[in-house]
Lab assay of single mutants.
Amino acid sequence: NRRVIAMPSVRKYAREKGVDIRLVQGTGKNGRVLKEDIDAWLAG
C-alpha cells in the first residue's frame, strides 16, 4: 500500500475524472503522478 506522490490539484483532477490515482503510474520526479499521467491513463 504505497503512498502516492501527487500535487493536490492533480488529485482533484483525478477525482473529477473518476480515476483511482493509486492505479496510475507516475512519470514525474520520484514517481510523482502528473496531470499528463492521468490523461494517459484515461486514453488507455
Results as ranks from 00 to 15, higher is better:
residue 21 I to R: 01
residue 17 K to Y: 08
residue 27 T to N: 07
residue 25 Q to K: 14
residue 35 K to W: 06
residue 24 V to S: 01
residue 14 A to E: 00
residue 11 R to K: 09
residue 31 G to T: 04
residue 5 I to R: 08
residue 34 L to G: 07
residue 29 K to Q: 11
residue 15 R to Y: 10
residue 1 N to K: 13
residue 41 W to F: 13
residue 19 V to N: 00
residue 5 I to A: 05
residue 8 P to N: 10
residue 6 A to F: 02
residue 34 L to M: 12
residue 29 K to I: 11
residue 34 L to H: 09
residue 34 L to K: 11
residue 36 E to I: 14
residue 28 G to W: 02
residue 35 K to E: 07
residue 28 G to F: 02
residue 17 K to H: 13
residue 14 A to C: 06
residue 36 E to Y: 13
residue 12 K to D: 05
residue 16 E to T: 12
residue 15 R to A: 10
residue 9 S to G: 11
residue 20 D to S: 07
residue 13 Y to D: 02
residue 22 R to E: 09
residue 32 R to K: 08
residue 8 P to M: 09
residue 26 G to A: 08
residue 2 R to H: 15
residue 4 V to P: 12
residue 27 T to R: 08
residue 30 N to D: 13
residue 12 K to I: 07
residue 13 Y to S: 02
residue 41 W to P: 01
residue 18 G to K: 11
residue 21 I to V: 07
residue 3 R to G: 13
residue 19 V to E: 00
residue 44 G to D: 15
residue 32 R to M: 12
residue 14 A to G: 04
residue 40 A to Y: 12
residue 10 V to P: 01
residue 7 M to G: 15
residue 42 L to V: 11
residue 38 I to C: 02
residue 40 A to D: 11
residue 33 V to N: 00
residue 22 R to A: 09
residue 32 R to A: 11
residue 1 N to Q: 12
residue 36 E to S: 15
residue 34 L to E: 10
residue 27 T to E: 03
residue 24 V to M: 07
residue 7 M to T: 15
residue 32 R to N: 06
residue 16 E to Q: 13
residue 19 V to L: 06
residue 30 N to L: 13
residue 27 T to H: 08
residue 21 I to H: 03
residue 40 A to I: 11
residue 13 Y to L: 05
residue 6 A to P: 03
residue 2 R to Y: 04
residue 16 E to S: 14
residue 22 R to P: 02
residue 7 M to R: 15
residue 42 L to K: 07
residue 41 W to N: 04
residue 27 T to C: 05
residue 36 E to D: 12
residue 25 Q to S: 13
residue 19 V to T: 03
residue 25 Q to L: 14
residue 6 A to L: 02
residue 23 L to H: 10
residue 21 I to E: 02
residue 9 S to K: 15
residue 29 K to Y: 12
residue 12 K to E: 06
residue 10 V to M: 03
residue 42 L to F: 09
residue 12 K to W: 09
residue 15 R to V: 10
residue 37 D to W: 00
residue 22 R to T: 11
residue 8 P to W: 08
residue 3 R to S: 09
residue 34 L to R: 10
residue 26 G to T: 04
residue 34 L to Q: 09
residue 17 K to A: 09
residue 25 Q to G: 10
residue 17 K to W: 09
residue 6 A to K: 02
residue 1 N to L: 04
residue 37 D to P: 00
residue 39 D to N: 11
residue 37 D to Y: 00
residue 2 R to E: 14
residue 40 A to K: 13
residue 38 I to D: 00
residue 24 V to I: 12
residue 6 A to R: 02
residue 38 I to V: 13
residue 29 K to V: 10
residue 31 G to L: 07
residue 22 R to Y: 13
residue 39 D to Q: 07
residue 5 I to L: 07
residue 31 G to N: 09
residue 3 R to N: 14
residue 29 K to W: 10
residue 4 V to L: 07
residue 43 A to R: 15
residue 7 M to W: 15
residue 7 M to E: 12
residue 20 D to W: 07
residue 22 R to S: 10
residue 32 R to I: 06
residue 36 E to A: 15
residue 39 D to Y: 04
residue 43 A to F: 12
residue 25 Q to H: 13
residue 8 P to Q: 10
residue 32 R to V: 06
residue 7 M to D: 15
residue 31 G to V: 02
residue 39 D to G: 04
residue 37 D to H: 02
residue 35 K to R: 13
residue 42 L to Q: 07
residue 2 R to V: 14
residue 16 E to L: 14
residue 41 W to Y: 14
residue 39 D to M: 08
residue 37 D to Q: 01
residue 33 V to F: 01
residue 26 G to S: 05
residue 9 S to N: 11
residue 32 R to E: 11
residue 5 I to G: 04
residue 42 L to R: 08
residue 26 G to K: 02
residue 10 V to D: 04
residue 4 V to I: 11
residue 10 V to K: 01
residue 11 R to M: 07
residue 38 I to M: 02
residue 21 I to F: 04
residue 15 R to D: 05
residue 21 I to K: 00
residue 10 V to N: 02
residue 33 V to H: 01
residue 33 V to K: 03
residue 37 D to T: 01
residue 16 E to I: 12
residue 44 G to Y: 15
residue 3 R to D: 15
residue 27 T to F: 04
residue 44 G to S: 14
residue 28 G to K: 03
residue 30 N to A: 11
residue 12 K to C: 10
residue 20 D to I: 06
residue 6 A to Q: 03
residue 23 L to S: 10
residue 33 V to Y: 01
residue 10 V to R: 01
residue 3 R to V: 15
residue 40 A to P: 01
residue 22 R to G: 08
residue 11 R to Q: 05
residue 43 A to G: 11
residue 1 N to D: 15
residue 15 R to C: 09
residue 42 L to W: 07
residue 6 A to W: 02
residue 4 V to F: 04
residue 34 L to A: 05
residue 2 R to W: 04
residue 22 R to K: 09
residue 4 V to H: 05
residue 12 K to L: 09
residue 42 L to E: 06
residue 19 V to D: 00
residue 7 M to N: 15
residue 11 R to L: 07
residue 36 E to F: 12
residue 34 L to W: 05
residue 19 V to W: 01
residue 24 V to R: 01
residue 31 G to Q: 09
residue 24 V to Y: 01
residue 36 E to M: 15
residue 24 V to T: 04
residue 20 D to A: 06
residue 24 V to Q: 01
residue 25 Q to C: 11
residue 21 I to N: 00
residue 42 L to T: 07
residue 15 R to S: 10
residue 6 A to H: 03
residue 41 W to D: 03
residue 24 V to A: 04
residue 13 Y to T: 02
residue 26 G to I: 02
residue 38 I to T: 01
residue 31 G to Y: 08
residue 12 K to Y: 08
residue 30 N to C: 10
residue 28 G to N: 02
residue 14 A to H: 00
residue 2 R to M: 10
residue 10 V to Y: 01
residue 23 L to K: 13
residue 44 G to N: 14
residue 4 V to N: 05
residue 34 L to Y: 10
residue 22 R to N: 11
residue 8 P to Y: 07
residue 5 I to W: 04
residue 8 P to V: 08
residue 33 V to T: 07
residue 5 I to K: 07
residue 35 K to V: 08
residue 39 D to L: 08
residue 25 Q to A: 13
residue 41 W to H: 09
residue 4 V to Y: 04
residue 23 L to Q: 13
residue 42 L to N: 05
residue 33 V to L: 05
residue 27 T to L: 04
residue 24 V to H: 01
residue 7 M to Q: 14
residue 32 R to G: 06
residue 8 P to L: 11
residue 4 V to K: 07
residue 43 A to K: 13
residue 16 E to Y: 13
residue 6 A to G: 03
residue 35 K to D: 04
residue 15 R to F: 12
residue 38 I to E: 00
residue 34 L to F: 10
residue 20 D to E: 08
residue 26 G to W: 03
residue 2 R to Q: 13
residue 5 I to E: 07
residue 24 V to D: 00
residue 18 G to P: 00
residue 14 A to L: 01
residue 21 I to A: 03
residue 3 R to C: 06
residue 10 V to C: 05
residue 13 Y to M: 04
residue 6 A to M: 03
residue 39 D to V: 08
